[in-house]
Design a protein around this nucleic acid. Structure first.
Lengths: 344, 344
DNA sequence: TTGTATGCGTTATCAT
DNA sequence: ATGATAACGCATACAA
């Protein structure tokens, strides 16, 4: 019967009121409409199966109900947990998540921030640590500035070299704690699988490790350190290389759990018993870390909570100065670490 | 200097052309603009840091570049893989993903479809099987109809009781295959951990199992079947119950991998060696299934591919009749299954 | 090829 | 409390 979709105008006519009134009862925050008219409009809307046009709404308000989320690795266990946290609060707020996967590519990351500005997202969360890339930080600064000055709120998770609100887990302390744990057990020749050098979190974790080593008078020799890319497969590759370079290491410390699990697979294949012949430790405490055998000693990072805090902060009003919230992490000793076989 | 954000009008003025021309060079699909003017506009846009307003665009076009995605369990390994697949094609298309998590709740599911209509999403993918709920299917039919008749394309992953394009993995065949595998090994007393009864996939998988059992003349006794909810924890609970009810079972078949892993934890705690004392099988072949010890025998479902196919289909034009694409699944025999200790 | 003018569906600012 | 009406920023049919 009608031509296009049902508009608010249609509802208004059907209810015998003005467009303005209809708008007020359907989407108006303040309800300054008399009871009778309210009902008429509601009935009409229901009757006509009215569905609001979110784009028109966003255009008129110059702000959409969307929150933008940029992750480094969509689908990975780390970001999955963070997403869960974010979703747990957006779902009760009538906000929806526009999710982008940067694949840890600086260029895409910058583009996606601009995309969020294009959508007039009310909030933007960049989950995943900052990148060590001069061009990147310069462009990101600009792009982020565009976003915020267009009215959006931005929050990053992890340490970024950017002047915006941040939720940052204490990676340095975590690195220190897990390394200290291995040292306390008596390990001295420890193979370390680092993260992508471009990430600030890789640096921070490694810094923590180095601190603990230094304090114990142990040096992390170059051939005992191999960088992975935070994937399971890179953990396998690195573990193999580590073992080849120095078969006498008594422990492997991977700077995230996924790589640790990759290393575990290698150890299993080589018949090296964990932790009897080789201790193994990870970082993050992803769900899988308690599913593997032996269960993985790691650093617990409250991933879900990171997401909750980030979105909560982003939904609050901005403060004059960037607000950074430090999140403590915690050593979780489980089955994969033990004393070295013969004195280290 | 300026008041609000930079609009296309500003760009046009700065370039000394009309709004229409600016629109054509910036966002016009057909490029019927002379070289010189083109450049002027591009330069002006770049100079002014022009960022398009996606909402205005969507309003004018009455179609946004967003694709809507509704999953049952955001963050879970099953849907994470599917999301990866979807993202791999949207990222090259300039489309972004608006992701909603229904938590398997029929009401939310329906609401989210309407939400996608509100956003004028160009495509909608409902990942996760259909629900056995009369009210649900009725309302969903209506809601989905609203979406499509507003111009959107909808595709579901899994068997739904809805007349729309679908990508459906062959769960029945999978159930048959994994059950047959256990039967072939000689198992006769098999504990089965089913999925949420509300899901069509739970039914289909179980139907397959029943078929294989029947063919082998084995009956699946009621006390050998416990339904979980596809989570790891429910797998633990179910495994415990199964073991309590009948300690003589020789195998446990979980209808998804997460529950199987939960069961594995229980078996480990009880000191039951897998597969020597108890065989264990799962379904889906999530990444973790090769990380656990022993590696999990399961049914491989091409999760990532499911996502790719769904979004590809959704981005193609609709056909007169609903198009359903059947996806074969495949038994993956690994370490967790073996012959029962003493003849079953 | 380029410009003009209208419409997209809401919100919000005015009057009344 | 309610109703006109002007933005909101862009695409596009139509005119030139």
């Amino acid at each position: 019967m009608n031509k296009g979709p049902v508009t608010l105008m249609d509802v208004a006519k059907h209810a015998g009121v003005s467009l303005a009134t209809a708008s007020r009862v359907i989407n108006g925050s303040e309800r300054r409409v008399s009871g009778p008219l309210r009902d008429q409009v509601m009935v009409a809307a229901r009757h006509l199966h009215y569905v609001r046009n979110a784009n028109a709404q966003a255009l008129a308000r110059s702000r959409s109900s969307i929150v933008g989320i940029i992750v480094h690795d969509l689908g990975g266990p780390y970001f999955s947990q963070i997403l869960r946290g974010i979703e747990s609060v957006t779902e009760n707020q009538g906000r929806s998540m526009l999710i982008c996967n940067s694949h840890r590519d600086p260029i895409r990351e910058v583009e996606y921030v601009t995309l969020m500005q294009a959508h007039r997202a009310s909030a933007l969360i960049m989950a995943g640590s900052g990148l060590h890339d001069v061009d990147y930080n310069e462009q990101m600064l600009e792009s982020l500035d565009g976003f915020t000055s267009s009215g959006g709120r931005a929050v990053v998770i992890g340490r970024h070299l950017l002047p915006c609100d941040a939720i940052v887990p204490d990676n340095v302390a975590g690195g220190r704690a897990i390394a200290q744990h291995l040292l306390d057990l008596g390990h001295r020749r420890i193979g370390v699988i680092g993260g992508p050098p471009i990430l600030t979190s890789s640096h921070d974790r490694l810094d923590g490790v180095r601190e603990a080593f230094a304090k114990a008078g142990v040096v992390l020799e170059p051939h005992h350190l191999i960088d992975g890319d935070f994937t399971r497969d890179s953990g396998k590759v690195a573990a193999i290389a580590l073992l080849d370079r120095d078969p006498t290491i008594t422990a492997i410390l991977a700077l995230n759990d996924e790589m640790a699990i990759g290393a575990l697979v290698v150890l299993r294949e080589r018949g090296l018993s964990v932790p009897r012949q080789m201790s193994l430790a990870g970082f993050d405490d992803i769900p899988a870390s308690t599913d593997v055998t032996p269960t993985l000693t790691t650093v617990h990072v409250p991933l879900r909570d990171l997401g909750v805090r980030a979105i909560s902060l982003a939904l609050r009003d901005a403060t004059p100065d960037p607000l950074v919230e430090a999140i403590p992490v915690e050593l979780r000793v489980r089955e994969s670490t033990g004393r070295p076989r013969s004195g280290g």
